[in-house]
């Protein structure tokens, strides 16, 4: 292990180290901590200028309830779910198919296609903005859930294809040879070999795609200007403009929209990290 590990028996040193790291962590998360504190602060604190000190009381339930009753945040949350969940499913389906073909079939243009899927994923969004907006207008889906769903599925398929291709390529060759020698068609191989084996990869991919799509802001402002379909990110930006003085409300909303991806991250941390570090290290 590098750096050299602190000896298990040196209890004092161990605790001192942990304490020092915790201090660094607290400084690192200071801005976030302050927002969490503000989100439970009673309104009276702001009136006397107590923005960053310890709250004079805890209005956790009141402030968070207010976010959902006094503002359209509940609506934005619902919109985000309606946009994110079908998009994630679409990405999983498409990338299993593309990943399977790109990893198990040799044909001319295979590498080129693969490179396009990866490269497209790194493009600046602005280069697609005008045509995508026009496309949704001409399809009559501008300012609707479907506009965002279609874009997210298309875009995330790039990254997801890389992910699924690498995963399926790492499965044992014998399985696919056995399927072929038994005369299984590609469809049968897909259903009986690939799909049962890719489940762990799908789980990892699902939470990554969920986080990316949930956190998207650019396409939300470009494709869904109206409150009725807008997701939480663009919604928070709106609230920030409308409730300038009401800090406890804005911070509660900020924390609320961060909760779904944070919970997902904690539940499936290992998958999450493996997905993000793919390509950086083996395995």
């Amino acid at each position: 292990m590098y750096p050299r590990q602190i000896s298990k028996d040196d209890v004092l040193k161990k605790y001192l180290y942990l304490a020092a790291v915790t201090l660094v962590l607290m400084l690192w998360l200071l801005p976030l901590g302050a927002v969490i504190l503000t989100s439970v602060r009673p309104a009276s604190d702001a009136a006397v200028g107590n923005y960053w000190g310890w709250p004079s009381g805890f209005d956790l339930v009141k402030n968070y309830t207010e976010v959902f009753t006094q503002t359209p945040m509940g609506r934005y949350f619902f919109n985000s779910l309606v946009i994110t969940i079908p998009s994630v499913i679409g990405v999983l389906v498409l990338s299993t198919l593309t990943g399977y073909v790109l990893s198990r079939y040799r044909f001319r243009g295979n590498t080129l296609l693969f490179a396009i899927f990866i490269g497209g994923n790194f493009l600046p969004f602005q280069i697609m903005m005008i045509p995508v907006r026009d496309l949704t207008i001409s399809l009559g889906i501008y300012n609707s859930y479907l506009a965002l769903i279609i874009f997210h599925v298309a875009f995330q398929t790039g990254f997801a294809t890389l992910f699924m291709r690498n995963f399926i390529a790492s499965l044992p060759d014998e399985l696919f040879e056995a399927a072929r020698s038994e005369g299984a068609s590609p469809l049968q191989t897909l259903i009986h070999v690939v799909i049962p084996l890719v489940r762990p990869a799908l789980a990892a991919l699902a939470i990554l795609a969920f986080t990316f799509i949930w956190n998207d802001y650019f396409w939300a402002v470009v494709l869904t200007p109206s409150d009725a379909v807008k997701p939480v990110t663009a919604g928070l930006d709106n609230l920030k403009g409308q409730y300038v003085a009401n800090w406890s409300l804005i911070s509660a909303a900020t924390i609320a929209i961060a909760i779904p991806p944070v919970v997902m991250f904690f539940l499936m941390q290992r998958h999450f990290i493996r997905g993000l570090t793919m390509g950086a290290v083996k395995g």
């Binding site: 498409l94 399977y100 995508v132 398929t157």
Partner: peptide
């Protein structure tokens, strides 16, 4: 079969991502 499998991904990605980028130019 493989052509059918990969077609939806290529068509969607091709139109929305690649096609749009070229069209912007």
């Amino acid at each position: 079969w493989p052509a059918l499998f990969i077609a939806p991904g290529i068509i969607l990605f091709g139109i929305v991502i690649v096609g749009s980028s070229v069209q912007s130019l």
